[in-house]
Simulated assay, not measured.
Amino acid sequence: MSPIYLVTDSVISQQAGHTLPFVVEEACRAGVRWVQLREKNLSTRAFLELGFQLKAITQKYDAKLIINDRVDIALAVDADGVHVGQDDMPYHLVRSLLGPNKIVGLSINNRTELLAAQDLDVDYLGVAAIFPTGTKQDTSSVLGIEGLREICALTRFPTFAIGGIHPINIQKVMQTGVTGVAVVSAICGQPCPYEATRELFALLEQSR
């Protein structure tokens, strides 16, 4: 699995002066092989059109395209899989709709949710939030480095950490035993997404 997992955000990308397809293309060109299309505020038609655009880009680079929450969009664009949270469609229904050959990722936020997921056949876990972020102000639910380390030690699944991960802390995160890191603004919000992605890969290489 690629150690860097890009989670998209159109608003952050636009604030940095980019279109989302441009950000995804630059990230994939720099080595990203997992991209999650996460758009909470788009209409179904706009989400679908964006999904087709990103599918063409990810195919070009042999990268995985994962759709956040929307099983219908994933089926329509023939994405590689779906990522669901604790409040989204239940995992077993997602799996039954997608079939056995697609990727299904699940978000977990604490040890209780981890234990509930242990008997599922998910393909990976998204572990959040590691640090406070602009979209997650409730610091009582922030896991921190030690919380992440504990979850990685308790699970057999591949794990991607997410939440406030940037160049300044990415090496500490990787030292917990996590499989990789999921980032949003560390790529989408940067002046040059390609160079930002290459910097993250270089930092990961140094931490090995």
Rank of each mutant, 00 (worst) to 15 (best):
V142H: 02
P132L: 09
D123L: 10
N110K: 05
Q118M: 15
D138C: 06
L120H: 10
S140E: 03
S141Q: 14
T133S: 11
A129G: 13
V142T: 09
S141I: 11
A117Q: 01
A128V: 09
T139F: 06
L114D: 06
L143P: 13
N109K: 13
G126M: 11
P132R: 09
A116F: 04
L125Y: 12
R111V: 14
N109L: 06
G134A: 04
D138G: 06
S140C: 02
T112P: 00
A117N: 05
T133P: 03
P132I: 11
K136M: 05
A116Q: 13
A116M: 09
I130F: 06
V142E: 00
N110P: 04
D121R: 15
F131S: 04
V127Y: 02
N110Q: 05
T112N: 07
G134P: 09
L143V: 02
L114F: 04
D121L: 14
V122W: 10
A128K: 01
Y124N: 08
P132F: 08
Q137I: 08
T133C: 00
E113Q: 14
N109G: 15
G134Q: 04
D121Q: 15
T135N: 08
R111M: 12
V122M: 14
R111D: 06
Q137W: 01
Q137N: 06
T133A: 04
F131P: 00
A128D: 00
D121F: 12
I130Q: 07
Q137L: 08
K136C: 03
Y124S: 07
L115W: 13
V142R: 06
A117R: 13
L115Q: 13
I130D: 12
V122E: 14
A116Y: 07
L125S: 06
I130W: 04
V127W: 02
G126L: 11
A129I: 04
T139E: 13
T135I: 07
S141R: 10
D123Q: 09
T139R: 09
A129K: 11
P132A: 11
L114Q: 01
G144W: 00
A116G: 00
D138A: 10
N110S: 06
L120P: 07
E113A: 07
D123M: 09
L114T: 01
D119Q: 14
G134V: 03
A128R: 00
G144F: 00
V122S: 11
V127L: 05
V142C: 04
V122D: 13
Q118W: 09
T133Q: 06
V127H: 03
K136S: 05
D138R: 03
Q118K: 14
D123W: 12
L125F: 08
D123R: 11
N110W: 04
